[in-house]
């Protein structure tokens, strides 16, 4: 039987090479393409026929829009609406990626640390540039020295603040990656229990793990929503920090 980690294997579909760099089209890229297509279809079908009394798909699109806009209003304020399109795209991309990964025979690209880390790292870079652009370099450096702290304490506190600032992309990416990877591995392990126990005890032994598997699938879908939400809300908080340096 395949190992529980075999589902995370990257397979090349079309081999491409750019000056010695491997830029092959893999199953991960395919899953991302499907994600983009799914999002485009979801939004296009939702707003194709705009009515005052919305249809079901239009309601879904509108409530997603409202959800993100209220998230930005609560966490950043009015100035944050500039970044609406970015956060909306980010949220939908991760959410649909997580959900498409739940389909059988598909691939969960959010379960790869390099993908989540590159997203988180570019958010980190963008937030740093926003902070420097809006407040200047000097104010940005002062961000690492909290006010109202005695001077001798600053020797210890400044490195701590800098390390905690630099650890943001790591904690942001590891959170998403670890949740998706652990969840999918667990599903596969329990799934192999169903097969092995059921085959060795005339199906009876497989019933309990199957019930467990169904419950875990539900939990995994909840986690897919939760992690996309957490990723988006943390991005909001970081942008808020950049806009209102304190």
């Amino acid at each position: 039987m395949a190992s529980p980690l075999a589902q995370f294997e990257i397979k090349k579909i079309i081999e491409l090479d750019l000056y010695g760099y491997d830029i092959s089209f893999t199953n991960s890229s395919l899953a991302m393409t499907f994600t983009v297509i799914a999002i485009s279809l979801f939004l296009y079908l939702g707003i194709k026929n705009l009515n005052i009394i919305p249809s079901k798909s239009q309601t879904l699109v509108e409530s997603t829009f409202e959800f993100i806009s209220s998230m930005i209003n609560d966490n950043i304020g009015k100035e944050g609406m500039k970044y609406f399109s970015f956060i909306f795209t980010l949220f939908l991309f991760i959410l649909i990626g997580n959900l498409l990964g739940m389909l059988p025979f598909s691939f969960t690209w959010t379960s790869h640390i390099i993908v989540t880390f590159s997203i988180a790292f570019f958010i980190f870079l963008a937030v740093t540039f926003i902070a420097i652009y809006r407040h200047g370099l000097l104010k940005f450096i002062q961000f690492f020295a909290p006010s109202g702290v005695p001077k001798p304490m600053l020797i210890l506190l400044v490195p701590i603040e800098i390390i905690s600032y630099l650890s943001r992309p790591i904690s942001l990416s590891v959170r998403l990656f670890a949740n998706m990877m652990a969840g999918h591995t667990l599903l596969k392990v329990i799934g192999s229990f169903v097969f092995v126990l059921g085959a060795n005890s005339f199906i009876i032994g497989g019933i309990l793990p199957l019930a467990f598997l169904i419950a875990l699938t539900g939990l995994e879908i909840v986690i897919a929503f939760l992690q996309a939400y957490v990723f988006a809300i943390l991005t909001c908080l970081y942008i808020n920090d950049a806009i209102h340096l304190h």
Binding site: I163, S164, L166, S167, R168, I170, S171, V174, R175, A178, N179, L226, V230
Partner: peptide, 21 residues
Amino acid sequence: YSLGIKISIDLVAAIITGSII
């Protein structure tokens, strides 16, 4: 659940960042 994940990963991420630097 989400709070536990947040706290535990913050703890680990800071240590990883420190050792990488």
